[in-house]
Nucleic acid binder design. Structure first.
Lengths: 266, 266
DNA sequence: CGCTATGTTGAAGCTACTCAAGTGGCGTGG
DNA sequence: CCACGCCACTTGAGTAGCTTCAACATAGCG
C-alpha cells in the first residue's frame, strides 16, 4: 500500500503546484468559513492559498498576469452544487476555502463519489474534453471558489510557459492520482483502503500546515464508503477495529491517528 | 452501467481527437504487425491513424507543423517496456500499431494493470507532473510508437491554439476515462465489470472501423482480472456464464458478442 | 512431441454485504 | 430547559459473492 500512499502523501510537499483535482477529502480543521463580507473581486497575489494553488510555481510578475484572468469568486453553500453533470463547461474553479465532493451518476440512479477536494485544489478539469461537466461538484461545507474562465487561461498559457507547464502538471497529476485510486479499489482490502484514506487526508492536511494526527472529516461514512467502494457499515466497522487496536481514536467525524507507521503497514 | 458505457463508447465517435490515454484494451484484430523494414522517420500527414490520433482536429497545414516535432518512431517487441515507472519523462508516445498495457507496481510487489492502449491512443501522460513515469508501459504484441518530445509539443502548443486545445482535451478525457473505471471498480459487480469491458472494447474497435462483434483479446485473463479488480478465475467463470446464456461466444482470446443489448442491460 | 503458459471448472472458505436493531449528537419546539 | 425527532453512526447475525486452492484441459512454442 505504501506506494500508493507515498505518491499521494508526498506529492503535495514535493510539488504542491501540481497537486490538484478530486482527492480523498482533506479539509482544514477548525478553518473558519469565508468572511461573509467580501468583494466578489479577488486576486492570486494576495491569496493565502497561493503557495499550493494555481500560481504555485509562478513568480510575482507572472502571478499578476494570472490575476487578469481570475476575475471573481463564488460562494457555494453546504449541499449546493458548483456545477452538475451535463452543465456547459466554461471555467475551472480553484477552491479558496471549504471542501467539495464530486459525484458520478449512473444511468440506473446510483451515485458514486469520485473525489474529495480541499482548499487550494482545482475543480472542473473533467469538463475540458467534452465542453460539458462529467460529474456533480457538491460543497461539503460553505465554500468559496475562484472562477477561472478556461479560454482565458488557455490564451494566457500560450503566452506564459510557466503557467502552461503548471496547467499540464495539474492535469497530469490528476491522472496519476486517479490511477492511485484505481489501484486502491482494485487491489486493496477494506482495511487497507480505510487506512490509505486516513493517511492521505493526514498528508494533505499536513501539507497545508495543519496537524498530521487530528483529522476533522467533513464527509459522512456513506460518502467515504462510496468513494472507497464499500458500504458505510464496513467503513464504520473498520474504524472501530482500528480504534480497538489502538491505531486511531474515533469521535464521530473527529479522528486522531495514534500510530501512523502501523496504519501504513496495513 | 450504461452511463459508463455510453461515455466510453460514444467518446471516440463524438470526438475522436480527445479519445486517448490508458483504456480498456482494444486492439485491431488481424492487424498485421508493423512492416519490419521502415525508416525511423515518420510524419502525421501520411499516417493511417491521423483521424483518431494526435492530429485529429488539425487541418493539413497544422498537421505539417505537428510533423516538425514528431521526428521518429520506436519499435517495441511483445513483453518489452516502452518505459518503466521511475524513468525520466521526456516524451509522450502515440501508438502507431499494436497494443500496450500500463502497470502500476505496489511497494509490496503486487502489480495492477491500470490501462490498456490501442492504436491511435497516447501513452506517457502520467509522466508530465513529476518528470518521471508513474507506471510501466508493456507491449502486448509487437508495436510501434511515434515519439513526441513533450517540451517541443509544449512549445508548439503555445503557437497553435488548435493543438493546445487538443492536448488539453486529451489530458481531460484521460481524467474522465479513469473516473469511469473508478465507478466501475467501486460500484459494479463482477458480471457488470466484464460486460462493460467487452462493450468498451467493442466500441473502441468499432470506432476504428473494425467489427463491433468479433473481438480478438490481446491480453490474458489475469491481465483482464487485474484491470477489473477481480481474479482470473472469476473472469473465466463470468465469460463462461455469458456464453452459457447465449450472450457471447468464447474461443480463448477470440470473443464474439452475440447480444450487445443484453450485455448492456447487465 | 512434450513442456510451459494460459485457461476452465469444482469445492470450500472468507470477506464484505444485507438486514436489522440500537446508540448518540444536534437542532427544534414545547 | 428538556423532550422529541431526525440523521448519522455503530454493532450484530446471517448470507451472497468472490477468492482460494486444486485438478484438469488446451494452446503456443521450442
Amino acid at each position: 500500500m505504501s506506494a500508493y500512499l507515498q505518491q499521494q502523501a508526498k506529492a503535495p510537499a514535493a510539488m504542491p503546484q501540481a497537486y490538484h483535482g478530486p482527492q480523498l477529502l482533506d479539509f482544514l480543521p477548525l478553518e473558519p468559513t469565508p468572511p461573509a463580507t467580501v468583494s466578489h473581486k479577488t486576486n492570486c497575489s494576495s491569496c493565502a492559498m497561493r503557495a499550493i494553488c494555481m500560481g504555485g510555481n509562478l513568480n510575482d510578475a507572472d502571478r499578476s498576469r494570472l490575476d487578469t484572468v481570475i476575475h471573481n469568486w463564488r460562494m457555494v453553500r453546504r449541499g449546493e452544487a458548483l456545477y452538475r453533470a451535463g452543465d456547459a463547461f466554461q471555467s475551472i474553479y480553484a477552491l479558496r476555502s471549504g471542501s467539495f465532493k464530486t459525484v458520478l451518476a449512473h444511468q440506473n440512479g446510483c451515485e458514486q463519489v469520485s473525489g474529495f477536494f480541499l482548499t487550494g485544489e482545482t475543480l472542473g478539469l473533467d469538463g475540458i474534453c467534452t465542453e460539458h461537466h462529467a460529474c456533480d461538484a457538491i460543497a461539503l461545507e460553505d465554500s468559496a471558489v475562484c472562477v477561472i474562465p478556461f479560454h482565458l487561461l488557455e490564451a494566457l498559457c500560450r503566452e506564459m510557459r510557466s503557467l502552461q507547464q503548471h496547467v499540464h502538471r495539474m492535469l497530469s497529476s490528476e491522472i496519476v492520482r486517479e490511477s492511485g485510486v484505481m489501484l486502491l479499489l482494485a487491489s486493496l482490502c477494506a482495511e487497507q483502503r480505510v487506512a490509505a484514506f486516513l493517511l492521505n487526508i493526514s498528508a494533505r492536511q499536513h501539507a497545508r500546515g495543519y496537524s498530521r494526527r487530528d483529522l476533522a472529516l467533513r464527509m459522512t461514512r456513506e460518502e467515504i464508503g462510496s468513494y472507497l467502494g464499500m458500504k458505510l457499515e464496513t467503513v464504520s466497522r473498520t474504524l472501530s477495529r482500528f480504534q480497538r487496536d489502538g491505531l486511531i481514536e474515533v469521535k464521530g467525524k473527529r479522528v486522531t491517528l495514534l500510530d501512523l507507521e502501523a496504519l501504513d503497514r496495513i
